[in-house]
């Protein structure tokens, strides 16, 4: 079972392309460019994010995802303009960061501190009122049993949950997460994504980077596909395959006497099909995976099992 199966909530997509900056947008990025010497890490990136939306930077390593995230937080100097909640990030970075919880890719805390000391230190910087009760948050993230441990004794999964707890300390409206599940095993990844999904349902705006398609499809309302720092596609996840022109191969397992009929039926509807062991193999275009299943069902052919390649 993949994450798509577990986390299935999909918000209506807000549209594709580059929406013009309007007052309804929480984040407006215009012509963001970042050069490291002769290397252009982010090249003229423009996009907007509405309140409550989950937007993913997707792309291979080196596509510019992490650099874009760092620019959103004003951690590195950049060219272009980033407006978050009406404030210019390059002029009012500190004020903007009050409204953002950040989960970094590399989980780097001060190893000598304990979990409690770390929470207290960052809570003070985030102006969380003294006496704030961390326990409900720590209970929800299953961290309560580890509060006295030094950071260096925490596993990768616990550190990731601590990073999320720190990001949520001041209950910011925006969460920015850089490859948040990169260091997690499958089980921890699914739990983490479920929690992110819960946060999204509670109205948080999420901007995250990932190179895992299943994460993107499980969580994002819109995907910004980056290649060599450039925005290639801005689309809802369910349109990605269509926009990218990906074809899918379906393996359909059928009763042996039905195989020949199935091949005839699918061929008659223009689908490339061939016999494959206990069934047939069919090539389908983006967004048409249901078509061969429907055709065989209408022809009264029972499908015993199927796999997607």
């Amino acid at each position: 079972m993949n994450n798509r199966d577990k986390v299935t909530h999909k918000k209506q997509p807000t549209g594709s392309g580059h929406p013009s900056p309007t007052s309804g947008q929480l984040i407006q990025v215009t012509n963001l460019t970042k050069n490291f010497g002769s290397l252009t890490a982010v090249d003229g990136l423009s996009f907007t994010v509405s309140a409550g939306e989950a937007v993913a930077f997707w792309g291979a390593n080196g596509a510019g995802k992490t650099t874009a995230v760092r620019c959103l937080l004003n951690l590195i100097p950049f060219a272009g303009k980033i407006i978050i909640n009406g404030k210019d990030v390059s002029r009012a970075g500190k004020i903007v960061r009050r409204e953002i919880g950040f989960v970094p890719q590399e989980l780097t805390f001060h190893d000598a501190l304990s979990v409690t000391e770390t929470l207290t230190f960052y809570a003070r910087l985030k102006k969380v009122p003294a006496g704030y009760d961390f326990m409900p948050l720590l209970d929800r993230l299953e961290l309560a049993a580890h509060i006295h441990k030094p950071i260096h004794d925490l596993s990768g999964g616990l550190k990731q949950r601590l990073a999320l707890a720190l990001a949520l300390l001041s209950d910011p409206p925006i969460l920015i997460l850089d490859e948040p599940t990169a260091n997690l095993d499958i089980r921890a990844r699914e739990e983490f994504l479920l929690y992110l999904h819960e946060l999204k349902q509670n109205g948080k705006t999420l901007v995250f980077s990932s190179h895992r398609l299943e994460e993107i499809t499980a969580l994002a309302d819109r995907v910004l596909l980056l290649e060599a720092g450039r925005l290639v596609i801005d689309a809802p996840p369910d349109q990605l395959e269509r926009r990218l022109g990906w074809e899918t191969t379906l393996h359909l397992y059928l009763p042996t006497p039905s195989i020949a009929t199935a091949i005839d039926q699918l061929t008659a509807h223009g689908l490339p099909v061939s016999k494959n062991g206990r069934g047939v193999r069919v090539q389908v275009k983006p967004g048409e995976k249901g078509k061969p299943l429907r055709l065989l069902h209408e022809a009264g052919i029972r499908i015993e099992d199927f796999t997607v390649e």
């Binding site: 760092r70 937080l73 951690l75 970075g93 500190k94 004020i95 960061r97 009050r98 953002i100 950040f102 970094p104 590399e106 780097t108 805390f109 001060h110 960052y122 910087l125 985030k126 102006k127």
Partner: peptide, 14 residues
Amino acid sequence: EQGTLLYLLAQPIN
């Protein structure tokens, strides 16, 4: 080098 500086500067401080 440890990356803690980046995380620290991601907080509401200048």
